[in-house]
Write a protein that binds this DNA or RNA. Structure first.
Length: 436
DNA sequence: CAGTATGATTCCAG
DNA sequence: CTGGAATCATACTG
């Protein structure tokens, strides 16, 4: 059997595999007789095995022979016709599918998180949001911020390198398949549209892999993000300086510890926290102070003295002009609860202040009287508040305090009915002495 | 490790 | 919307 004949047998045989030779009476007879199809398949298999046993050169030669076969153009055109009428017309309809909403969602998310798209966009914004939510001090948040950014950049890098690998593999594979199809198009009818379709199939396959990559990237970002957003609940104490500033304000406005928006902003700026954190702090402080005034007395005293010392220092500076300052803003002096003596019977919440004032009215301005409390001894001031306080400035401070106490006592007694610890005043604010 | 302190959140009332 | 009150969750401390 020469090559030509073998090939012809091969062609008809393979043709019979895909399409029964309906017109061939011999074939019909063969189909009818029992056991004949099995024999045909056996033949075909044998031929296939024979082909696979051939060397590459032999196969190339056979391919060439096939291409040059005289029946080839006719067979080719028939195949083309059949194909046109069936496969493409059916599948052509399904060609254009809408973009996968899942992919779109993932893409949007990756874009929003700054993983895909321009580098300096959403990532830092998301980090800033996370840091803002975390609400730490600027230093802390910047540390977290950079930490978040670093991790996001890492994810971004991995994502892009993987994506690149996938795209490279995809294009390599596509090229390979296209070359193969072009090669095959010499022996079987393959239209450009079919090649296109095949490319689309490959791209779909790869895009499903890409989707997995995007999905896992999104998951990684979500985990990272949740770790930073969880920091929202992850409480972090304010630094000492911030607490001091807040406490100073609180205790120097004890009769009305409700900072205005401007004051809140100012405090927030001073403390390096957000305005809402300032609000939280004051909310908590008011509640906790009110609930347990006794517990906060020491703290109140400390801050009151601190403020007084500051005032005294100012007075001392002003003393060169021989004019001790008169108390004005705030109600520092109302915070000196620990000077409690046996008091009058006012409401429990007012009792400490009133008791203090009661005692002050009995003070003769004696330095000893104050220093005997321990609280105002210059030594104590030096040690506990680390403030140098000269005798002169201390004297001014004392005068300052005594004056303030007397004024405050009058104010407080006047206002106590309407201002029972931050209750609503009955008088207009301008006549209300205790409104800080 | 238990108790306490404290920043944040939630719910509700005005 | 703001503030009070209760509560949660975590940090800090002895």
């Amino acid at each position: 059997m020469d090559d030509q004949t073998r090939m012809l047998t091969g062609l008809t045989g393979l043709g019979g595999l895909s399409q029964p030779d309906v017109g061939d009476p011999d074939s019909v007879r063969k189909q009818q007789s029992l056991g004949q199809p099995q024999q045909d398949i056996g033949d075909i298999l044998q031929q296939i095995m024979a082909i696979t046993d051939e060397s590459l050169d032999e196969a190339q030669a056979r391919k060439h022979a096939l291409n040059c076969h005289r029946m080839k153009p006719a067979l080719f055109s028939v195949l083309c016709e059949i194909k046109e009428k069936t496969v493409l017309s059916i599948r052509g309809v399904q060609e254009e599918d809408p973009p996968d909403p899942q992919i779109m969602r993932l893409d949007n998310m990756l874009l929003a998180e700054g993983v895909s798209g321009p580098e300096k966009g959403g990532g830092s914004a998301a980090a800033a949001a996370a840091a803002a939510a975390a609400g730490g001090s600027p230093t802390d948040s910047s540390i977290e911020h950079s930490d978040y950014r670093a991790k996001l950049a890492q994810i971004r890098q991995i994502y892009h390198s993987e994506l690149e690998k996938y795209e490279q593999a995809c294009s390599e594979f596509t090229n390979h398949v296209m070359n193969l199809l072009r090669e095959q198009s010499r022996t079987r009818p393959i239209s450009p549209k079919e090649i296109e379709r095949m490319v689309a199939i490959i791209h779909r396959k790869f895009s499903s892999i890409q989707m997995q990559l995007k999905q896992s990237t999104c998951e990684a970002v979500m985990i990272l993000r949740s770790r930073f957003l969880d920091a929202r609940r992850k409480r972090r104490n304010f630094n000492k300086q911030a607490t001091e500033v807040l406490n100073e304000y609180f205790y120097s406005h004890l009769s009305n510890p409700y900072p205005s928006e401007e004051a809140k902003e100012e405090l927030a700026k001073k403390c390096g926290i957000t305005v809402s954190q300032v609000s939280n702090w004051f909310g908590n402080k008011r509640i906790r102070y009110k609930k347990n005034i006794g517990k906060f007395q020491e703290e109140a005293n400390l801050y009151a003295v601190k403020t007084a010392v500051d005032a005294a220092n100012v007075s001392a500076q002003a003393s060169q002009a021989n004019s001790p300052a008169t108390p004005n803003s705030g109600d520092t002096y109302l915070g000196l609860h620990s000077l409690n003596g046996e008091g009058l019977n006012f409401t429990p919440s007012l009792q400490p202040q009133v008791d203090t004032l009661h005692r002050v009215t009995h003070l003769t301005g004696g330095y000893e009287a104050l220093s005997s409390s321990g609280l105002f001894s210059p030594h104590r001031l030096d040690v506990s508040i680390h403030t140098r306080c000269s005798v002169v400035s201390f004297m001014f401070m004392f005068i300052h305090l005594a004056d303030a106490f007397i004024q405050s006592s009058l104010q407080f007694i006047t206002c106590r009915a309407c201002c029972d610890l931050w209750g609503k005043p009955e008088h207009p604010e301008e006549t209300h002495a205790c409104m800080g």
